[in-house]
């Protein structure tokens, strides 16, 4: 039997100052799935992702990546994961090529294969004219592409995208959607968080909604859409009243 791409059981994360960010969270992502992870700001999405990738230490619970324990066998587990974070965690003075190349090196890719991967990703994400520019010189959309290329340099089986299209224009967003669909077709499992419900509705096959650190609804996209649109299902799951939201606007 194939192990799930991600298996989280009873994950709990309490920060040093006592904030409970994630509380008894369990979820499973099937290999090859395009998984949408939704929730309001502060619901625990990024914390869950940080626990999966090693940026945060889980307080308790178990996380497995393709059957490998992400805490005990963290080095093995991390080789399987690529992360495109919500915030740009980059040396802003480094050049585009360096950023992707260094990450490849961190994951143990030797020079010839690393060079081939970097060149391929630079072309794939149309970064060639910007390859020698420093990260700080790029527009927001180009920065997003660099971050995505960096996440893919070691050809991970699981790609985690934390709000990958935040702050990018419509054209680039559609380009990125196309890239992501292509990646998923090629067999990559994708975990996507986004505040754009249209994006999740268009790309994902399975959706999970988190609120207050707990999963409040999970299932195939079709189930969410059966009773109306995704927005209505989302608002119902998170306890927000549609009228209240429109009134606030």
């Amino acid at each position: 039997m194939t192990a799930p791409a991600v298996s989280i059981s009873h994950l709990r994360k309490v920060y040093r100052r006592g904030t409970v960010a994630v509380d008894d969270l369990s979820m499973t992502i099937a290999p090859g799935d395009f998984f949408g992870f939704l929730g309001p700001n502060g619901a625990g999405k990024s914390t869950t992702i940080h626990c999966i990738t090693g940026i945060a230490r889980p307080t308790s619970g178990k996380i497995e990546i393709f059957g490998i324990d992400a805490v005990k066998d963290y080095r093995e587990a991390r080789r399987l994961v690529g992360l495109s974070p919500q915030e740009f965690n980059v040396d802003t003075f480094a050049k585009v090529t360096q950023i992707i190349d260094w990450m490849g090196g961190y994951f143990g890719l030797r020079a010839p294969e690393r060079k081939a991967r970097v060149e391929m990703l630079i072309d794939r994400f149309e970064l060639r004219p910007h390859a020698k520019k420093q990260f700080r010189e790029l527009s927001g959309g180009l920065k997003r592409r660099v971050i995505l290329a960096r996440a893919l340099v070691h050809d991970p089986k699981l790609l985690i995208l934390d709000e990958p299209t935040a702050g990018v224009d419509v054209e680039l967003r559609r380009d990125l959607w196309r890239y992501l669909q292509e990646l998923n077709r090629d067999g990559k499992t994708i975990l996507l968080t986004s505040h754009y419900l249209e994006e999740v509705e268009r790309l994902c096959r399975t959706i999970s909604i988190i609120n207050g650190g707990r999963i409040v609804r999970e299932g195939p996209k079709a189930e969410f859409l059966a009773s109306g649109d995704l927005e209505a299902a989302y608002l119902a799951a998170t306890g927000a009243e549609p009228d209240h939201i429109s009134g606030a606007a």
């Binding site: 080789r79 994951f107 294969e113 391929m120 072309d123 070691h154 090629d186």
Partner: peptide, 19 residues
């Protein structure tokens, strides 16, 4: 163009090997 390369980049790492 595929994002994958042809190489097997996900080959397992020996538990005690040095990166």
């Amino acid at each position: 163009m595929r994002i994958h390369g042809d190489q097997d980049l996900g080959a397992p790492m020996a538990p005690m090997s040095i990166n």
